[in-house]
Amino acid sequence: MNDNDISEKMRSEMVKNAHYRMDESSRMISICLDQIGEKEVWARPNNISNSVGNLILHLCGNIRQYAIASLGQTQDTRDRDSEFSAREGLNKKELFAKLRDTVEEAKSVMENTPVSELIRPREVQGFSFSGIGIITHVVEHYSYHTGQIAFWTKQLKNADLGFYDGVDLNVKNSDT
């Protein structure tokens, strides 16, 4: 196997795993949205915290800015302040559709990003990242806010969200 084949295999594996993690976050957010009411989607635990609706808008803005605009080399049109200032707006179904569409577009960009763009540095939001750094940021940022959404949903409902119902999480690692 030559270096180009190895690089392409590594690119493909990284993208596949990023997609898996993003799909897991989407799955968990969907479960949370199913548990809360329309009014609760815009409820805030206090004046300095964000609602589930704000967090979903924020995720869409961040994923669009990093993955779609920067990695995909399109115009950055993000209005970050509006993500946090909203107090109402889209309903649960509309919010999840916006998130799902944003994530799918970002995954498409990742899938079509050549190795040369994964190692090229660029400026995003005042920070310098390679394409690999952008993908890493998008995945970890999505996961971070998914955890906040899950925590707030648990606070609202005082219930286990069942993210891994039917899965034995005590299975030991194996060499495969």
Rank of each mutant, 00 (worst) to 15 (best):
M110S: 02
N91R: 01
S130A: 06
N173M: 08
V115N: 08
V103T: 08
K98R: 10
M22L: 15
D76N: 14
K92L: 02
T102Q: 03
A86T: 00
E111L: 13
M28H: 12
Q125A: 15
V167S: 01
H137N: 06
D3N: 15
D76F: 06
R21K: 12
R80D: 01
A106V: 01
M14S: 10
N91P: 00
H19T: 15
R100Q: 09
F129R: 10
V52S: 01
A159Y: 01
A43G: 04
L95I: 09
S12Q: 12
K157P: 06
T102C: 14
R27M: 10
L169C: 10
V109M: 01
V109G: 08
A67L: 04
Q155E: 15
R87D: 13
M22H: 04
N158T: 13
N158K: 15
P45W: 08
N112V: 09
E38A: 14
D101E: 13
E117D: 15
A106C: 11
A43K: 12
S108F: 08
E117R: 10
Y164I: 09
F127I: 04
E40H: 04
M22C: 10
I132V: 15
T113R: 09
G162E: 05
M10L: 15
Y144H: 15
M10G: 01
H58T: 10
V171K: 12
I29R: 02
E111Q: 13
Y144E: 11
V41K: 02
V124I: 15
E111R: 12
I119N: 05
S174L: 09
K157Y: 06
L169S: 12
M14Q: 11
A18E: 06
